[in-house]
């Protein structure tokens, strides 16, 4: 494609700014028109597409969101916003697997992003909801199948005893009680298996001590305490430049991503989908 002359690029940039102004005033139609003009002038700037997608998202025109985001991703595969909005749009048309994939990508790229475009919490909210629904669906199916299996096992065991009885004459009490125990044990085994699917508590070491919620973007301080990034930044801004737990002096630049905890959280969530539940 021939390079766009600088004057045209400048004009497109001005149109984008117009669009942003309209968007802030909730004049979505005018904003869409401005972004569309900018796109016509400079079709290979990803931001124009994502900005227009955001307008469509406000209007819940999900097909158009999807189209614009896909275009933006062709131009910039690292666009957090494009992955986020595309994920959201896919969820809206019940494509859970596709939506979750996009949102996970967005979350990955969004972690540690600069404050201006930091949107981890928004991404998390949408992703968590989808993941929770997915878990709920799978686990109810799973529990149903397990119940069926348990009933079948019980019946099989009982009829096995009956056959055994008809072949050998025994009315010994010992055998009868052993059988009862076996049936009890069967219930026990299934009960335990079911428990793995029940919501429990998220362990404290996977939770931020300020949000009391499971980590999304954990960062560690020089004192060795891990916090949710957005929240520790809030603390540094609003309360003071110290570590909330140890009260040691703390500056923003000292915060480092805690990748080990991030992985531990992911492993936990993969195993326990219920932990995505938001209160």
């Amino acid at each position: 494609m021939a390079p766009v002359p600088a004057s045209v690029a400048r004009q497109a940039e001005l149109l984008k700014q117009d669009g942003n102004t309209y968007f802030k005033k909730e004049r979505l139609g005018a904003a869409i028109d401005a972004y569309t003009e900018a796109i016509t002038l400079c079709p290979d700037v990803a931001v124009y597409w994502t900005n227009r997608a955001l307008c469509y998202m406000r209007r819940k025109e999900w097909n158009k969101v999807e189209e614009d985001c896909k275009k933006a991703l062709q131009l910039d595969s690292h666009s957090v916003k494009a992955h986020y909005m595309l994920g959201h749009a896919l969820l809206e048309r019940q494509d859970y697997a596709g939506g979750i994939k996009e949102l996970e990508k967005a979350l990955d790229l969004g972690r540690g992003a600069n404050p201006a475009s930091y949107m981890v919490e928004d991404i998390w909210q949408v992703l968590a909801k989808a993941k929770y629904l997915e878990w709920e669906d799978l686990s109810s199916k799973h529990i149903y199948r397990m119940h069926k299996l348990m009933e079948a096992c019980e019946r099989a065991l009982t009829s096995f005893y009956t056959i055994e009885d008809s072949q050998v004459q025994n009315d010994c009490e010992e055998i009868a009680s052993e059988r009862l125990q076996q049936l009890e044990f069967l219930k026990d085994v299934f009960g335990k298996a079911e428990q793995d699917d029940q919501p429990k508590e998220v362990p404290d070491y996977l939770c931020c001590q300020i949000t009391l919620d499971i980590f999304r973007d954990p960062v560690i301080t020089p004192s060795g305490i891990t916090y949710e990034r957005a929240v520790i930044l809030d603390h540094l801004r609003k309360v003071g430049k110290f570590d909330p737990v140890t009260r040691e002096p703390l500056e923003q630049h000292q915060l480092v991503p805690n990748l080990a905890i991030k992985e531990a959280v992911q492993a936990f969530l993969d195993k326990h989908g219920w932990a995505y539940k938001m209160s």
Partner: peptide
């Protein structure tokens, strides 16, 4: 304020 945190605090306490 953070409603979710306050709810968790109550339960925990």
């Amino acid at each position: 304020f953070d409603v979710s945190r306050v709810q968790k605090e109550l339960t925990e306490c």
